[in-house]
Design a protein around this nucleic acid. Sequence first.
DNA 1: AAGTGGTCTAGACCACGAG
DNA 2: TCGTGGTCTAGACCACTTC
Lengths: 260, 260
Amino acid sequence: MLGLGTVDRSDGRPPYRQIAGLLREQIALGRLAPGEKLPSEAELIAHFGVARMTVRQAVQELRGEGLVVAEHGKGVFVRSAPPVRRLASDRFARRHREQGKSAFLAEAEASGHTASVDQIRVTNEPASAEIARRLRLSDDDSNVVVRYRRYLADGRPVEIATSYIPAAIAAGTGIAEVNTGPGGIYARIEDAGHRLAHFTEEISARMPTPDERRALEIGAGVPVMTLLRTAYDTNEVPVEFCDTVKVAHAYLLEYDVLAR
Amino acid sequence: MLGLGTVDRSDGRPPYRQIAGLLREQIALGRLAPGEKLPSEAELIAHFGVARMTVRQAVQELRGEGLVVAEHGKGVFVRSAPPVRRLASDRFARRHREQGKSAFLAEAEASGHTASVDQIRVTNEPASAEIARRLRLSDDDSNVVVRYRRYLADGRPVEIATSYIPAAIAAGTGIAEVNTGPGGIYARIEDAGHRLAHFTEEISARMPTPDERRALEIGAGVPVMTLLRTAYDTNEVPVEFCDTVKVAHAYLLEYDVLAR
DNA sequence: AAGTGGTCTAGACCACGAG
DNA sequence: TCGTGGTCTAGACCACTTC
């Protein structure tokens, strides 16, 4: 009926691992296609003759691997892999801004995916010690415009980002508006007279926090990459600090380094 | 006694999340130091007055985040972070080689850690399709020298790396020897008349394979970063391809990008 | 033997989504 | 309302580690 096997009590592996393995196999073979719904817990309990916690533990393992996503009240569904986004090191090249595109949209267009941004939140607040350090803000003027947003590729969350711009630079530029206008915040920063010279980027990876898991709609076992970027103008003044968290398997970051 | 708080049944968050949050807080504050043992399940049950599955679910969340490691029969321990290694984008600068140091040792010295290399294995074999593509090898001369090694910082494995050098370039240079001599393989490649011009690096992150877990001595919930590097000489000829797998939390990669 | 985490059972009530 | 997954309880037996 379900086409799944059965648990073998004499097998060395515990039943929940066997069940997880059987489901994983169905997914790998494509018999459970991306987007398709797994058998419900009740069906799995009946099919395998085990307790509810046992099938839940099996499904938990697949969720941890990011293979499936549970939707409360609806069911558990096979995850479709998001398209891999290649981020070239020239993605902030001025020519993209001059065409009125933000870096994210320019990159998405180049790779043939649909891109969108949502959950934009903009606030104006005092900088934390870390942010003040990154932006070299003095104590008497440490206000920053904070821009949070979430990026989606083909409708799936792939990145959350928080930008911090010194309030003095953002003043009267539209940076504090939800819609920053053509070219994005970097275009507005240049409008304000700060010509961008270079960026430093710090990359690492880790497991997501529960909040990040929710925002990125990933399981507990799916790692994220963190990319911290600081933008400098031609006077070596930091004009923006951006903290991004990306779904690791959705990104390939490319850099070119001179041997000098 | 335990210094932990209590669960608030009227709080919106479920008890297991509250317990996870309290433990996470203790770890963040350093009151539960790296390597230290968490209260046992029995203690947590008594302290919070909940069922065993509830405390297990809390601990499960911390395990998923890689904050703690469970050891069967012993307890659950706060994971001790290995020293973070900052890799600056100038780490292959010629000046390091001219001082007779390999990139890894130069970087380790700069950050004040002890560094070592082991498990060096060198072979000479036909390139796979992927390697041949990366090194632009023709079918009639696709032999490569393959150098595998493992890097340790302060005695802990942090990276495994496999380099592929076209056999034609490696011939008679010492690249095929276990000990490549001062400056490492890049110095030998330059000795062979290929002056290095630049490198491209592709970075992503994922969960480790079982083999990688063994080599890096990490648990199943610890992510790795992958860095694929191709070295080019001044004629834009690829002279080396290097596939590295790093313990994610042990590395911070730094790049500088021009706004151009 | 005692303490630890790993797995399992058989129930219960709740929150969410769709009809 | 009904089916779904989310959380919780109160037990049980097992495997591993330490003494």
